[in-house]
Design a binder for these strands. Sequence first.
DNA 1: CATGAATGAGGTTTCATTCAT
DNA 2: TATGAATGAAACCTCATTCAT
Lengths: 208, 208, 208, 208
Amino acid sequence: MQARSTVTVEAIYEATIQVLLAVGADRLTTTRVAERAGVSVGTLYQYFPNKQSLLLSALEKHVDRVASVVEVACRRNHGQQMSTMIESVVEAFVDAKMERSDISMALFATAVGAQERALVNKAAKRTHAAMASMLATAPNTKFDDLPFTSLMLFSAMGGATRAVLEAGSPPKMVRSLRKQLVLLCGGFLTSVAVEHRKLTHAGTEPRQ
Amino acid sequence: MQARSTVTVEAIYEATIQVLLAVGADRLTTTRVAERAGVSVGTLYQYFPNKQSLLLSALEKHVDRVASVVEVACRRNHGQQMSTMIESVVEAFVDAKMERSDISMALFATAVGAQERALVNKAAKRTHAAMASMLATAPNTKFDDLPFTSLMLFSAMGGATRAVLEAGSPPKMVRSLRKQLVLLCGGFLTSVAVEHRKLTHAGTEPRQ
Amino acid sequence: MQARSTVTVEAIYEATIQVLLAVGADRLTTTRVAERAGVSVGTLYQYFPNKQSLLLSALEKHVDRVASVVEVACRRNHGQQMSTMIESVVEAFVDAKMERSDISMALFATAVGAQERALVNKAAKRTHAAMASMLATAPNTKFDDLPFTSLMLFSAMGGATRAVLEAGSPPKMVRSLRKQLVLLCGGFLTSVAVEHRKLTHAGTEPRQ
Amino acid sequence: MQARSTVTVEAIYEATIQVLLAVGADRLTTTRVAERAGVSVGTLYQYFPNKQSLLLSALEKHVDRVASVVEVACRRNHGQQMSTMIESVVEAFVDAKMERSDISMALFATAVGAQERALVNKAAKRTHAAMASMLATAPNTKFDDLPFTSLMLFSAMGGATRAVLEAGSPPKMVRSLRKQLVLLCGGFLTSVAVEHRKLTHAGTEPRQ
DNA sequence: CATGAATGAGGTTTCATTCAT
DNA sequence: TATGAATGAAACCTCATTCAT
């Protein structure tokens, strides 16, 4: 019976995504989700106290997955050269977003309330932390404000990725995106780090 | 006569924003907007055929304003040094977004449908074009793909700004934001431009 | 100024018909009628106290016209042979209905209330009376209950004509209609009259 | 379960008629119907997608019933003398119309749109077909164009009946109606059939 | 536990009518 | 007189949620 519940809940999650993609957030109804999941509305309400909690849970699942992917990528690159770090993280990030980009967009469209944003922020914090502790292990480099730097980095990456997705994302563009993101992040980190070094050991070390 | 209508429409626009801020996009109702505007629902429907068109118009007004601010900033900096360009544009962009950041967030929360995105994209295109033609006048610098570069730049800036806004944006953070955005953009443009020169006259020109 | 009013009212009547035909009775609005008439709603309300009275007047105009046509045809055939009477009246009736059959149908669709029906009934009474006094002059023929006979005759003709109109009325059908209506009316009147004669002078007069 | 729905739907149908009779077609609202049926509006909309479909279904039910009554009457009189045929059909028709004449009128007042007319036409076609095949079995009689003849017959009957109904139908009138309808139909059919015989065996057969 | 019929508050939209200009 | 912006009651319809079976 535990198993049956799991299956049902999983079906409801999947149905939520399906309906979101099919008809959009504003025309998503609990009945439609239940239908798609092959259960009755009553059943749906046995597992989720109300519509909001359903969407919230679905969103949570998704952002957690993306956050985990990035966390793993960060952990794997502790101690590497900064250029390697950047490439790995960009790759992980773009892959995670692109893999089911439609879901990403559909779910974020539901994330308008305070609770939803809190959820997203919490996951964001996790990735920032992961990235910060990775960057802290970069050889020969120091950063002033790693948490904020991570925020900048991810939100910039997120913004650019989102823009490309919303532009219709022709494959060629997606390919460019990765390269450009590497440049974007690399440029930024270099600037920030260089600034730091300049301030500290002004002029003594030629760049790169 | 004419004057009366103008006043009414303006009041409705203002009320739309007010309600959006007060109760959020999903609990905005045409009745509430009309009430806040001090007119009857019927009047609202004399100027907007339906709820969507009301929100769409409000969004359009807003994005057009932001786009215009950026366009002006770009036009004013044709021929300047790239660092000046970047600083000016970042300043204009952040100012425009921050000035009424709450509105920005509230309105974008309504921008989930295809039409809304088209609207935003159209405005984005305008800013990209303005930025591209500005960058084309930067002395001693060339770029491979100015349109895409502009897209990257703006969407990255937009993402970062949005993230800071959504994080609650303590004043200190906002101050950092500008500085970091300058670094972000500067770093990126340098990378892109450098890449270009490297490919063209590899090794012959030491980095300035 | 009297003239201007007449012109305006006439334009409103015409517009009413136009709108009725264009969008149907249920989507006819006073504003639309005013627009079509080239005046403002306010002006419309200067001549008609409310929407119902507008439709009522339009209906009245129409049924009066049809009634008059029939009345004239009846008066012209006083003293004629019955077959001539029938042919003339059928011709007048079908012509009047067909000439602007669309208007007929559109207007009758508005005739659902008690007042409207009263209007139509009043006009019907007039035609019945005209027909009755014509039939009273038919040579060698007597009828028991002329008013009711007239009612039967006209309503039967009306029903058949309407059915043909609503069936889409291919021209061939319309042509048949006249011939068949003559037979219908002729047959009926013969039966009624014959019945009468039979009862009175049973068997003595062979049928013409 | 199943039973509950059936009961509900039936209650809604009944309520539709009730409201139609009580307040008229134009003031019939879905809320009023639901109230009268003892259910909530939501329930009504679970069975009928919109107001029009509700009225359409009610109309369909009604015309189907009338059509069936006539069909049965026709089938029962195959091979009978024509006079018997006529009497039986007239009786069935008038009974069906009079039995719930108020409903008839109320429902037909809603039949203004194209779909409604199509519905009525379809039912009419059925009765025409039934009558045509009955008439084809009349001994010693032939008709040129049975379909059209049936159309004429029914629409004439319908028109006359309707007129009597709308005139307020004092009982005396209703009694007359039957007799007169028999004469009307009889006269018409004789004319049509006679015409035919004249054309075929001109002059050889004295009229029965 | 599952079902799905029933609920009804609440949202969007229409349109006859008024009245200040 | 003419105008047309404003009104607001009232209609249609949706959908999150409940509860008897």
